[in-house]
């Protein structure tokens, strides 16, 4: 499975990580080694084996439907990032988090 620069860019875009051509080429080299390692799995016959998502064979616990959370907006928004693009203000206004316009 030879990865191409286009593959890396497609994956990086899905993951929302900018990579330039040079980074993509470096990534190909490193990822190819790792994927080679991963390929070892294909030699194993796994027919009829139930996939294992958790090490415990337990079921989901349910939480009573009772409100216990209080408003911690101010505390949480202290961590809001700076707006950027020349502004040194936090990316918040009237309790909303600010992002570049979302276009549908």
């Amino acid at each position: 499975m030879a990865l191409t620069q286009a593959d890396i860019k497609r994956i990086a875009h899905l993951a929302r990580i900018e990579v330039n051509d040079q980074e993509a080429d470096e990534t190909i080299t490193k990822l190819t080694g790792i994927l080679g390692l991963i390929e070892q799995m294909q030699a194993i016959d796994t027919n009829d084996i139930t996939p294992m998502s958790h090490s415990q064979d337990a079921v989901q616990r349910l939480r009573p439907d009772v409100v216990t959370k209080t408003n911690l907006r101010e505390a949480f928004q202290k961590n809001a990032p700076l707006l950027g693009n020349g502004s040194n203000e936090q990316a918040i206004a009237n309790g909303l988090y600010l992002v570049p316009k979302v276009i549908e």
């Binding site: 707006l83 203000e89 309790g95 909303l96 600010l98 570049p100 979302v102």
Partner: peptide
């Protein structure tokens, strides 16, 4: 929810350019 019309929450930001921003309410 994304709030697209931030004029109603004006007064808010000296950064201006709020017309280019959306507000996120979780």
């Amino acid at each position: 929810k994304s709030v697209h019309d931030l004029k109603s929450v004006s007064a808010l930001h000296s950064a201006g350019a709020l017309q280019d921003m959306s507000g996120i309410d979780l």
